[in-house]
Amino acid sequence: MIERLWAKFGKTSSQPSEPLATDNLPQHVAIIMDGNGRWAKNRGLPRIAGHHSGMKTVKRITMAADRVGIKYLTLYAFSTENWKRPKAEVDYLMRLPQEFLAIELEELIQNNVQVRMMGYKGGLPDHTLQAVETAISRTANNTGLVLNFALNYGSRKEMLGAVREIAAAVQRGELSLDAIDEKTMSERLLSSGLPDPDLVIRTSGELRLSNFMLWQMAYSEMWFTDVYWPEFTEEHFLEAITEYQRRARRYGGI
């Protein structure tokens, strides 16, 4: 089935000539949202202005993913390394989930979006955690797009935790060495219950993974853009999906 989904977003000069194929959509899209600070600096604004503008992009891309038919959208909101940033910036970033969900939660519920969090609750301020947990609870029964926030998340820490769990299970005699396989590992990751990302997008021109879903991205398609996250539009999102649909995923075969 072919559908001209571009029409839902309006015609733009960057619009590809061919329509999106609805039978070849990525099931899971993960985005490394980068460039908020540089976007603000280029405009003579404080970095927090970039983060505030980036919050609006989260809403825009979430709704775009939902309209297109993406099933899972994971957004890298705050890494375990981001605590190294200046305290004022970290404090502001920790207020953003509360601000975003206070404004957008009702619409997310109306659109049948389910909110999840992938990360470590320890260290998060109470107001941040409460806002996220309220959104998770209120959307738990929704059956549409899964909006998964990677918050206080780091892939190496995640994998070390999974390895420790497996080692402890072996020590207790609950698991044999011969029984350990990829499924054993995946089930103990923070992303357990989610499919691996089909498409990973990174904004701002950086060409690195930044400790994001390293196990899960073994066969993900990568798409990089120079556009800063606050400037990332629905058209850019559809451009990434269109490029994904042009590629042949061989998983090591021919």
Rank of each mutant, 00 (worst) to 15 (best):
Q15R: 15
D181C: 01
E133H: 05
L194E: 09
G37D: 08
F100V: 05
I61S: 07
L209P: 11
V29E: 10
R172K: 15
T22F: 00
D196Y: 09
T57A: 14
K41S: 12
E104D: 10
R172I: 02
R4S: 08
D34Y: 12
D126K: 11
G161T: 03
P16K: 00
I2L: 14
N211L: 04
A167N: 03
P86L: 04
R164M: 03
G144L: 15
W83Q: 02
E165Q: 15
S186Y: 07
R246H: 11
E243F: 07
L214V: 14
D23G: 05
L75A: 15
E174W: 08
I31S: 00
A88T: 07
P86T: 02
L199W: 11
G193Q: 14
E18G: 12
N82C: 00
I136G: 02
L108R: 10
M118H: 06
E81S: 08
G161E: 05
N112A: 06
E106M: 04
R208F: 01
S186A: 14
L124A: 05
G37I: 07
S14R: 11
P86N: 03
V113W: 04
E235Q: 14
P26Q: 01
I254N: 06
Q110S: 15
K157E: 09
R38T: 10
L5N: 10
L177I: 05
F78N: 11
G253S: 05
L105R: 07
I254H: 08
I2M: 13
A240T: 05
Q130C: 07
H127F: 14
M213N: 09
A65E: 03
F9N: 04
S14P: 00
I166E: 11
S14C: 10
G252N: 09
R38C: 09
E107V: 06
E174D: 14
E165F: 02
Q114N: 07
I32T: 14
R116K: 08
W215N: 06
W223N: 03
T225W: 08
N112W: 06
R188W: 08
I180Y: 12
L194M: 10
K11P: 08
R208D: 05
R164S: 04
E243K: 07
V163S: 11
R95I: 00
R85G: 01
T203I: 01
W223E: 10
G50V: 02
R95H: 13
T203C: 02
F78A: 13
M117I: 13
A64W: 06
S14N: 12
E182H: 04
T139I: 10
H28W: 03
Y76F: 12
A135H: 13
A169Y: 10
S79E: 04
